[in-house]
């Protein structure tokens, strides 16, 4: 089984992003960047399946600026076999990312496309679903466990009220929840090995796709709501706060 995984370059989850002075966008120029955490889960799962002998090849795909090469190196160090960078300076919305993914998927013909459930910058949680819709493939989003049985996978999916178990036939699109697995720590030898693995580069503009914008970012504002905390020193006052809420 061949797996195509996603590797999006995003602002590190521990970085607090700031709004630009003109509110046109966020300031990320000098921020620490990372592989999207959910993509780490997707990649980890693919690597585990490969270690079990169920997967023959893992191809990582990133769409972004030339700097995403660094993100793909991380994906390769995590155990992907080769990588594809579709280069563009555009900040594409999930629909256009899905178009590019669909294009590459038609070339690569993976049995399984394993993505993160959401990118932690746009928090859209859309791409896997759009891709599956475009390719007319079955989808499972927010997967918390995968059990491969020949040509089908039994997937547990996290839902608001608990979870559901689905049986999905390959080829398929699955998006990973954070609880899917605990991504391993990468060691130096793996980072060294990753340098030797191939990264194929393509320009988004050369793919012959209509990547025109379906939406426009008008402005951004700070969404933080800090409060003035009243510190209580007497537990009776704490009890009264709770009672004041109708308890």
């Amino acid at each position: 089984m061949k797996v195509l995984v996603a590797a999006k370059r995003v602002v590190d989850p521990n970085v607090r992003v700031r709004v630009k002075a003109d509110h046109s966008n966020v300031e990320i120029e000098h921020s620490k960047m990372s592989l999207n955490p959910f993509d780490e889960n997707a990649i980890e799962e693919a690597v585990r399946l490969k270690e079990k002998g169920l997967v023959t090849e893992i191809v990582a795909l990133s769409i972004g600026t030339i700097k995403s090469e660094e993100t793909l190196r991380t994906a390769l160090a995590r155990g992907c076999d080769r990588a594809i960078l579709v280069e563009s300076n555009e900040n594409y919305e999930p629909l256009n990312i899905a178009k590019i993914f669909a294009h590459i998927a038609k070339e690569e013909k993976p049995d399984l496309i394993l993505l993160g459930k959401q990118a932690i910058d746009d928090d859209a949680n859309q791409m896997a679903q759009m891709l599956a819709g475009k390719l007319n493939l079955p989808q499972v989003t927010c997967a918390s466990s995968l059990d491969v049985n020949g040509n089908s996978i039994r997937v547990v999916r996290e839902i608001d009220a608990g979870n559901e178990t689905l049986e999905i036939n390959l080829p398929a699109v699955i998006s990973a929840d954070l609880v899917l697995n605990e991504p391993r720590f990468i060691k130096l030898p793996q980072l060294m090995m990753a340098k030797k693995k191939p990264i194929e580069k393509k320009l988004a503009a050369d793919l012959g796709l209509d990547l025109s914008a379906h939406s426009r970012l008008i402005s951004v504002t700070d969404g933080e709501v800090k409060k003035q905390c009243k510190f209580l020193t007497n537990l009776n006052d704490v009890v009264n706060v709770i009672k004041a809420n109708g308890v």
């Binding site: 999930p94 949680n125 859309q126 791409m127 679903q129 759009m130 599956a132 819709g133 927010c142 939406s215």
Partner: peptide
């Protein structure tokens, strides 16, 4: 919610349209 996030982007993508989340 989990149903909306699962379903709506897929329908939008199928129609080659975008979607706004949350």
């Amino acid at each position: 919610d989990s149903a909306g996030k699962d379903l709506l982007p897929r329908v939008a993508g199928f129609l080659d349209m975008g979607q706004i989340s949350d």
